[in-house]
Design a protein around this nucleic acid. Sequence first.
DNA 1: CGATATGTTGAACATTCTCAAGGGATGTGG
DNA 2: CCACATCCCTTGAGAATGTTCAACATATCG
Lengths: 247, 247
Amino acid sequence: MLKTLSHDLSLQCGDCPIRHRAVCARCDTDELQLLEDIKYYRSYEAGQTLVWSGDRMEFVGSVVTGIATLTQTMEDGRTQMVGLLLPSDFVGRPGRETAAYNVVATTDMVMCCFRKKPFETLMTRTPHIAHRLLEMTLDELDAAREWMLVLGRKTAREKIASLLSILGRRDAALRLTGTGDGASFELPLTREAMADYLGLTLETVSRQVSALKRDGVIVLSGKRGVTVPDFNRLLGEAGEDSDGRLA
Amino acid sequence: MLKTLSHDLSLQCGDCPIRHRAVCARCDTDELQLLEDIKYYRSYEAGQTLVWSGDRMEFVGSVVTGIATLTQTMEDGRTQMVGLLLPSDFVGRPGRETAAYNVVATTDMVMCCFRKKPFETLMTRTPHIAHRLLEMTLDELDAAREWMLVLGRKTAREKIASLLSILGRRDAALRLTGTGDGASFELPLTREAMADYLGLTLETVSRQVSALKRDGVIVLSGKRGVTVPDFNRLLGEAGEDSDGRLA
DNA sequence: CGATATGTTGAACATTCTCAAGGGATGTGG
DNA sequence: CCACATCCCTTGAGAATGTTCAACATATCG
């Protein structure tokens, strides 16, 4: 695995695909050099668990490529996804010893890692990093709270539509194609992962996806390909206003 | 209203009840003086809306006394509480113009406010404030994610028990009485507010509270007084381990 | 005292879950 | 190359949990 990524292992920060969005986004050249000195890349295969809840975390870092999930689990096996980690998202919490969630790779991944201690000391000296991390954390908090509305108050159909709009929007943002009208993307999640995200069973997810397809809100190509002919219609189904604000 | 609080209006930071927990917790004497210079107190009555979602926020600040809620609302009136603001909690987001949620006082409140601009510039110069704010935001993110598990995967009875344990624990922390075994506190929320927090209807909340009372998990004194004879039993009902960790 | 806000309880109903069966894909070993 | 296992997904039928609608209780406040 590591061998196939040797070109990534020598990646310069200046060429990094997440340079302008990750925790290093606001760093100037000097600061970037300090990070460059202590960073190292690490790769994971789809399905691999990066961190177990309760484990000691010896590093923090950014997702460079791939997708991971944050999940919480109850004794009897009920699990709830509490976050989706995409390229540029930050993993780990400075100032805390142990992980609070399971972190699992959904696809093959590459992470840009920093040992926790050096990163923490570096953070106290480079306010740009701390500032960017605060900004990112506030964004995550907003996302978590938006998701609380989905979990607490939306119907199964609205939940599915909400998830699809998020994935669609993110995909559009990533390829910088304005959501002209339609959208088309790959579902990076299994029905079970979707269910864990939405607080549903996988059967209900399957049924509601089928229903949205039957009603023409989405078109499926293969098992994972999703096309949204009319994005505003999807937003409507999600219980959101066409302009993307809460409905 | 303001008149009855005149003694608070001249409160010195050194004597502030939230001095060691709020955003100013890590400030030294000099830094505290800078905050002291730009702070002002403001009070609200129970039921009053501090901020409407979408409105311009001209200040940020800390809850000194009282309780407020953060809520999101959908077009058709469905609402979800996404946060409970207690003394020392921070309101507002530096670097953002408009509020993302409704903030409503549940009880009479006193806030320690800072106009946003001066606070933001002060923050760039005093890393202790930024650092503490990051820490608090990370804690809130953890709390939000813990709540996602409650909303997504717990039964109505477990939800009620979860809310009661949180309120009980917080009450214990506030009065520094270790949760020896039992606990007794006032419910600061109506049935409807509890329902909005838990993603339930108020009828279901009422029924499940009655059921917990019938089963001896809690004892009610009046409408709002709650006594928990065996806190571990309550945690069990919440689907959590006796030691407070996820079950 | 009536008006309003808050809380309780009941009965019918709806949505989602549970349990169960079966249908492609894909991959592996014979 | 085929048989078989595994993984993921779909669909159905019945059960369960929570909601809705409605009536009524209790408390506060003018």
